[in-house]
Nucleic acid binder design. Structure first.
Length: 621
DNA sequence: CTAGGGTTAG
């Protein structure tokens, strides 16, 4: 097939390298002219665009004034710039346009604004950038002025653009303007709604579509994934397959993300074998999603196997691998991998540093973490985010250097946020420092008065030092302030089906068996000398008045269910939405010994790998 | 020559 070169960047990729000097470009240019490959305006346009997208702007500019100055050439340039690494350049090129722009021109500008907005919102934790929002508005206004705002492509682009800047009202207005929206428009709207957190409305729109194509299905899928409704995402994927919709890479990436969220290892592995059996090429994105799924399911060896097998790795790949190691308590390995990353010349970003600092933290590598934090500013000229300060406080605090943690906070050039105080609060809990804990709590509640996790932490601090008055004070505080506790929930996958257990719940169809198993477990543990930490549990505010509920924390229910259903010798994997409490942690350690089972538990922050009565977190979490 | 779906942290 004589494929037409549609993407300018693919034209002459071997000839125009990013580092070619001008003289070399002139050579190539002359060669192309002589061989007649620039004869037609479209080829000329492709060449210009190709130069622009490989950052040879100045040379591309030289070619622009060539006659005929067609819109084709200029639009091609706009397109390349909009899709390139510096979308803002498209606006510079637009200002120098020697001709009146057409509707094509505007689709590229809209696209450029969308990319800028996406980059702005991912670069910093700040929700929206005013400048980008203004830019979006002016692009749209310009489209109106030139009479091209009614073009379907511009319109659907506008919907995505406003979604990218987070302007819900503008999204609705832009969509309402479209007289007869097609699949693409509706899909854009669908994506916009789910990006704003309103997946249910998105789903209504999806169901009402006359016919959905695979992109619409994928948009819906990621909508669920984005808001953390992984179960529904997987359900939708089943429907998608039943409907015979083609399953491509984007679909599998979303499915893997859903598996990672739920800790659904079996389904994740199913995707892996699906990919292999069909001989699909494992792209960077797919490979990264696979590796991430494995580490979030606690199977670091497989994650690293995928990582090593990849031929191309980008910043996401490295960061995901690093955070996988950190999450699984493999701090030394994390730091080693980071050194390897630096040696390849891959530039770490803010997220990478969060991962590495967490790695240092779980392994107690205080000096290394400090060096890493300093190198961030000095070597990588990156300004630390509040998250990084939080990581540092966690690093010092977890290692027991509480003074250093406090000094670090005092020397911060920016106002500490709740994460920083939360890290200090947790450190106070680990090291039984009630005074410091109270101080951290005081600061924290001034910022975020209804933080439920913080209240639970403070209560645990008091309980640890048998200060029951303190415990009940916290409880009253929660009542009067109306702090709502998120109910504990643990999930376990059996035969590809994920079972969820809520704290104290008896609604599982096999609850009778679970109850019997729990009794058996307690009996066996008692024989081994384990006694439930009743005093603490009695005041465990998660459970409030129910003293009989000691064994009913959700992870215990899931654990019992796992022991019943999973064959001996297989690893029991549990995913919990909150932090594991001390009692459950001790309990699980003992179970791993008494039942001789390996248990992998993912809690809100990290993994616990229980084996032979010990945990990989070395009791620090 | 045009528009929509994908990966990393908290």
């Amino acid at each position: 097939m004589a494929a037409r070169l549609r993407d300018p960047a693919t034209l002459l990729p071997s000839l125009v390298g990013a580092s070619s000097p001008h003289s070399r470009l002139r050579e190539i240019h002359a060669h192309l002219l002589v061989s007649g490959r620039l004869a037609s305006p479209s080829h000329h346009a492709d060449f210009v665009a190709s130069l622009a997208s490989s950052s040879h702007l100045s040379y591309a500019r030289l070619l622009l004034p060539r006659r005929p100055a067609t819109l084709l050439v200029h639009n091609g340039l706009l397109r390349a710039l909009a899709r390139g690494p510096c979308p803002g350049l498209a606006f510079a090129a637009f200002r120098e346009l020697p001709l009146a722009p057409d509707h094509y021109s505007f689709t590229f500008l809209v696209r450029a604004a969308t990319s800028l907005a996406a980059a702005a919102s991912s670069a910093t934790p700040v929700p929206t950038d005013v400048a980008v929002s203004l830019l979006a508005g002016s692009v749209h206004a310009a489209a109106f002025r030139h009479g091209h705002a009614a073009d379907l492509h511009v319109q659907s682009g506008a919907v995505s653009m406003y979604a990218a800047v987070g302007d819900v009202g503008a999204v609705r207005a832009a969509f309402a303007e479209i007289m007869s929206p097609d699949v693409v428009c509706v899909t854009a709207m669908l994506g916009a709604l789910s990006a704003g957190g309103d997946v249910d409305t998105a789903r209504e729109l999806f169901d009402r579509m006359p016919q959905q194509d695979h992109v619409a299905w994928n948009a819906m899928l990621t909508g669920y994934v984005r808001v953390g409704r992984a179960r529904e995402a997987l359900g939708l994927f089943d429907e998608m397959q039943k409907a015979g919709v083609s399953v491509g890479e984007a679909t599998l990436v979303s499915v893997l993300t859903a598996c990672a969220q739920m800790g659904a290892l079996e389904r994740g592995m199913w995707v892996h074998s699906y990919v292999c059996s069909r001989g699909m090429r494992v792209s960077v994105t797919l490979g990264t999603a696979l590796l991430d799924m494995y580490s979030k399911c606690g199977v670091v060896t497989m994650a690293m196997e995928v990582f090593e097998s990849m031929t191309e790795r980008n910043i996401y790949t490295w960061t995901s691998a690093l955070s996988g190691l950190a999450m699984n308590g493999m701090g030394e390995e994390c730091l080693e991998l980071f050194k390897r990353m630096e040696s390849t010349g891959m530039e770490p970003n803010g997220v990478t540093f969060v991962a590495v600092l967490r790695g240092c933290s779980v392994a107690g590598l205080v000096e290394e973490g400090r060096a890493c934090f300093d190198s961030m500013k000095d070597k990588h000229k990156a300004e630390p985010w509040l998250e990084h300060y939080g990581c540092m406080v966690d690093l010092y605090g977890r290692a027991g250097c509480l003074d250093d943690a406090v000094n670090f906070i005092n020397s911060m050039p920016v106002e500490p946020h709740e994460g920083v105080w939360g890290a200090l609060l947790n450190a106070s809990r680990i090291h039984n420092n009630a005074d410091l804990g109270k101080h951290a709590m005081y600061k924290l509640t001034k910022i975020e008065s209804k933080n439920d996790a913080a209240h639970v932490l403070l209560s645990n601090i008091y309980a640890e030092s048998h200060n029951w008055k303190g415990v009940s004070k916290v409880r009253n505080m929660m009542k009067s302030k109306g702090v709502k506790k998120v109910p504990g929930c643990s999930a376990i996958e059996v035969d590809g089906k994920v079972h969820e257990f809520f704290v104290g719940s008896k609604s599982h169809p096999r609850y009778k068996d679970i109850e019997t198993m729990l009794a058996g477990m307690s009996h066996k543990l008692r024989l081994q000398g384990y006694t439930a930490n009743t005093k603490e549990v009695l005041f465990d505010i998660e459970e409030e008045e129910k003293e009989g509920a000691i064994s009913l924390h959700s992870e215990k229910l899931a654990l019992a269910f796992g022991l019943i259903t999973l064959p001996e010798g297989t690893v029991i994997r549990i995913v919990k939405n909150l932090r594991v409490c001390k009692d459950c942690h001790d309990y699980t350690k003992m179970i791993s010994k008494v039942f001789d089972r390996e248990i992998v538990m993912r809690d809100r922050n990290r993994f616990h790998h229980f084996k032979h009565g010990a945990c990989s977190c070395r009791d620090y979490w």
